[in-house]
Design a protein around this nucleic acid. Structure first.
Lengths: 217, 217
DNA sequence: TAGATTGTTAATCGATTAACAATC
DNA sequence: TAGATTGTTAATCGATTAACAATC
């Protein structure tokens, strides 16, 4: 009795956390878990977890709970992990290279096809086995390989322009690591941003508050 | 008439975005802006912006709007940018090095004091002018320099252990880049995580949905 | 002054929590 | 069966939006 009608952002943002937690439970050899135990381990209420899952279907057994591997599999399916998404990296500066080398794309259902840059010193080389191509060939490559996502790690001054090119070339999503609020010119393209600055400033606020409270005591 | 009593997470997460947007407006030479214009440029309602600012005080002028530089300054103050926070990086792998080299800590009010690692090959060297010290000296250093934040970029297997050490050593916040849900053992320490995986899986979900919808049309 | 826009309270909307019958 | 726990609806809570008097 799926009723996938308009799942809220709040729910969507929790799905990857469920997936991560279930992976850890699975690795720890846990076979079954109840909504209340899962909630306790994640700082959520049992009600919220059941309500979240209710958006997508019925994955548990009354009186028993959820089978960890099954639920993980189902959530992975909802997230699209088995869809074989493809991705390219645009910009091979320090951060771009680090992500190419470190990030487990395949564990998240993505296949990294190539990297792009304009610097003649890196074009033609490989990073962790991934070929670096000249940015001039971006459009042709995206079309030829039907690339799903472009990871953007270019200097902030080039962000919007390269974002526009990716969208025009036909990617379906942009994973934005520039500290720039990318304007999405195409309705059919999703922009997901990782803003380091926003994260650190949030932390800055929280520890400053704490400090103030101590001062007031 | 500040009424700082319990500001919600939703509001706090928007503060860095306001700050970023105001910085861009300032750079573009914009002097004054109304809540409706700011909202339009950020995809928020004027009401929400006024309501958010209302949590912290009165920063505008009726009939006129907000002075961009003044409001930016005030929000920076709320975020704690001028508090001279200090920070160390724990783990100098690809990502740690990239962040040390790229990230504009000072622009966010942080001073990067040192990096820590266990690899004898990097201990004693410098990365972008930042000395790399042995992780064994972590506790002494944190105490001696009263470090506010520890940026965690160690392998996932060492994440909790190094997190615990940072907390015990006396940091007030941990900026967690490991793909691990750090358990916060101390009530007086804030953990702020940047989970690349969660972000990419959210994007994966959103483009998969889009695909499904196309298929149904 | 007239027009614009804020600060602030009230109304609405949506998300979280509670409750409980269904059922394993 | 009795106990546990889900799926699902109803109640509550909090966040967003609307409204408007205050005032620049």
């Amino acid at each position: 009795m799926k009723r996938n009608t308009k799942v809220s952002t709040a729910v969507i943002r929790r799905l990857p956390r469920y997936y991560r937690q279930l992976s850890e439970l699975q690795a720890a050899g846990v076979v079954r878990i109840s909504s209340s135990a899962l909630g306790r381990s994640m700082g959520l209420t049992a009600s919220q977890i059941r309500q979240d899952l209710f958006c997508f279907g019925e994955f548990g057994q009354q009186g028993y709970g959820y089978k960890v591997d099954l639920l993980k599999e189902e959530i992975g399916e909802i997230l699209g992990i088995s869809q074989g998404h493809t991705l390219i990296v645009v910009g091979t500066g320090n951060l771009g290279r680090a992500i190419i080398r470190n990030f487990r794309f395949s564990a998240n259902g993505f296949r990294l096809l190539a990297a792009f840059d304009v610097d003649p010193a890196v074009v033609g080389t490989e990073i962790a086995g991934i070929p670096v191509r000249h940015a001039g060939g971006l459009e042709d490559f995206v079309a030829a390989h039907s690339v799903d996502v472009g990871l953007l790690t270019v200097p902030i001054a080039a962000a919007q322009q390269m974002g526009d090119r990716l969208m025009a070339a036909g990617v379906r999503g942009i994973w934005n690591f520039t500290n720039y609020e990318l304007t999405c010119t195409r309705q059919d393209v999703v922009v997901e941003s990782v803003h380091f600055s926003d994260s650190l400033l949030t932390l800055s606020y929280l520890i400053s508050q704490r400090e103030d409270m101590e001062g007031n005591q």
